[in-house]
């Protein structure tokens, strides 16, 4: 008798894979986008099954919500539905097949060989066991800071592996500002670079729209110029 949550895990995984396949195989970009949405929602389900509730919620809000809306908007604005670029990919896809087969073979064989090996240790239900000689947060649910490091209960990284703390806002926050503080901070530099780059490559500064200003030669090429997007609006209904 299969555990209910394990059955759900298979259902969500199947849906995620199906969504991924749909994204690759659908001819129309909007169908692809909807498949991707499907895949992202299934991932949120998997996160929820793994007790990572905060991540599951963020997945729905940010990926399935904000990012997908952006993707759909871009598809509509650029009017990609009518593009004739679809035939080109056929050949490329065929060329990639042997590589795909090899990868599937390697990974499949590997996955099967390790499948029976080790299950991850289940999350601890009881008190935290401290390493000898080290003070740590022993009880993660009593509101008391046992080891005196100013981090109480789930906010303390000692509690990361305990069921009541795993995946909570506190645990994710404690991890982000603890072991993963460096990537967390560097991500902000990465985002800054992304923002500056996006403004630089696509954004026209106000001065450039004035008639007195520059010859087109000094403008860096941008993805969609003004005429392109107005055209897209005309045909938006068709998408």
């Amino acid at each position: 008798m299969m555990d209910f949550s394990v059955a759900l895990l298979y259902v969500f995984s199947g849906m995620a894979v199906a969504g991924g396949l749909g994204l690759v195989l659908c001819k129309h970009p909007i169908h692809g986008a909807i498949s991707l949405l499907f895949s992202m929602l299934s991932l949120a389900g998997i996160y929820a099954l793994l007790d990572a509730h905060l991540i599951a919620a963020l997945q729905v809000i940010i990926y399935a919500g904000a990012i997908m809306i952006l993707v759909v908007y871009i598809i509509m604005l650029l009017d990609l539905g009518s593009a004739d670029a679809q035939t080109v990919y056929r050949k490329a896809g065929l060329m990639g097949l042997p590589l795909l087969a090899l990868l599937l073979l390697l990974l499949g064989q590997g996955m099967i060989s390790v499948a029976g090996d080790a299950a991850a240790p289940p999350l601890a239900q009881g008190p935290v066991v401290c390493p000898p000689g080290v003070a740590c947060e022993t009880d993660c649910g009593d509101g008391v800071d046992q080891d005196g490091d100013n981090m109480t209960d789930c906010a303390d990284t000692d509690c990361a592996g305990v069921a009541i703390c795993f995946g909570t806002v506190e645990a994710v926050g404690a991890n982000l500002l603890g072991p993963f503080v460096l990537p967390f901070e560097i991500a902000s530099v990465l985002l800054l670079a992304g923002i500056v780059g996006a403004i630089l490559l696509t954004g026209r500064k106000p001065g450039e729209l004035e008639p007195s200003v520059p010859p087109p030669a000094i403008q860096p090429g941008s993805i969609a110029d003004a005429s392109g997007s107005s055209e897209a609006q005309d045909t938006e209904g068709a998408v």
Binding site: I186, L190, A193, G194, V196, P220
Partner: peptide
């Protein structure tokens, strides 16, 4: 650590992607 590795790999790569189209002409 892999997450750090990945984030800084992206940082070093994305800046290069932007530098190429900046060349006008």
């Amino acid at each position: 650590e892999l997450i750090t590795f990945y984030v800084v790999l992206e940082l070093s790569a994305y800046c290069l992607y932007i530098m190429v189209p900046m060349a006008s002409g």
